[in-house]
Design a protein around this nucleic acid. Sequence first.
DNA 1: TATCTCATGTAAGTGGTTACATGATTGC
DNA 2: GCAATCATGTAACCACTTACATGAGATA
Lengths: 187, 187
Amino acid sequence: MSLKNVLLTLLDRRPQSGYEVVKTFDSEVGYFWSASHQQVYRELASLSDAGLVRFKLVRQDDKPDKKIYTITAKGRKSLQAWLEAPLLPKPTKEPLLVKLLNTREGNQELMLAELERALQRSVELRELYASIEARHYSPAQRRDMLPGDIMLHVALRRGMHSIEAHVFWLEETRETLLGLFRKTRLS
Amino acid sequence: MSLKNVLLTLLDRRPQSGYEVVKTFDSEVGYFWSASHQQVYRELASLSDAGLVRFKLVRQDDKPDKKIYTITAKGRKSLQAWLEAPLLPKPTKEPLLVKLLNTREGNQELMLAELERALQRSVELRELYASIEARHYSPAQRRDMLPGDIMLHVALRRGMHSIEAHVFWLEETRETLLGLFRKTRLS
DNA sequence: TATCTCATGTAAGTGGTTACATGATTGC
DNA sequence: GCAATCATGTAACCACTTACATGAGATA
């Protein structure tokens, strides 16, 4: 039910092909949504069946033909209805915490290793986000941006804050685990 | 594939009925996992079919009979294999950001309202978490806790850090939106 | 009399992943 | 010659939600 609204949102910004949508998931929109190409093509087909989008087949000589999708009036209405309905909080699912719940004497190294991997990934991501912000969202650049683009920055900020918190927690947890480790070794 | 490991983890801590597992999702474990009773019963049945858990039917006079599930050797092996396999980062999906991407002249109020709801929810949750920590995880209480229980505190800390970051971002975003609002009203 | 707790499930549907499949053009 | 890019899809399966269903005992 939500990929549907993501696609309508993206097509409302500008008409584009399924392929382009997938590319978008791999780049700007990737911090807060992504979907496989299979899912995108299937969903676009069913949105088209439902009359929420329509497509024009564009023939190309050098590349494969493509379908450019556009949102319809009905699609805009459906998107608007979703925007007006309050979001329900979605239950969290954190496999890393499930793993950590299995911590006991004799497998702390395993847990530490998982923690270190997560930490490394997070630190890299943090740097990536910071560099994207520096390059594309300087205060000067932001001054005359359209709301839609400002919201891309807002999304990036979401990612930056949450990764900061995650790194902080990972380090805190590593200390907790090391403390536990020392305790059991000495007993 | 992950609910399976959650159930094995919980049953490895102590044997219990499906009903109790569902209760656990509504309380301690709720910060990082939850599942509906339908899902739990179905998954327990299929784990049982696969020989990863077994159950004993316990007759009760005053209450309905219940099935107490226990993890088997095979189940423990399967859980261990999962613990040893590195976790893959899962793609984020944030409907709130999808909504915000629809911000344009004429619907800022809608977006602000959604933001305010999220903020209120988060602030309430933050207080709840703080009170749980104060009651159950004081430094004194933590000193002689078992690893399994310390990990429940670690999970709570994860929730606390991430909600703090979320509140911060929500407030930042509210300011951004208000700025946008003022701009368009004056032009 | 009505609602809550205990305790279990089935059935149908939606959302998402993984594997399989095709085929031309461009760049190392 | 090999991989990547462009562009689309089908089929099978897994995860999860929503709706429906039962029935006894406790509490207001």
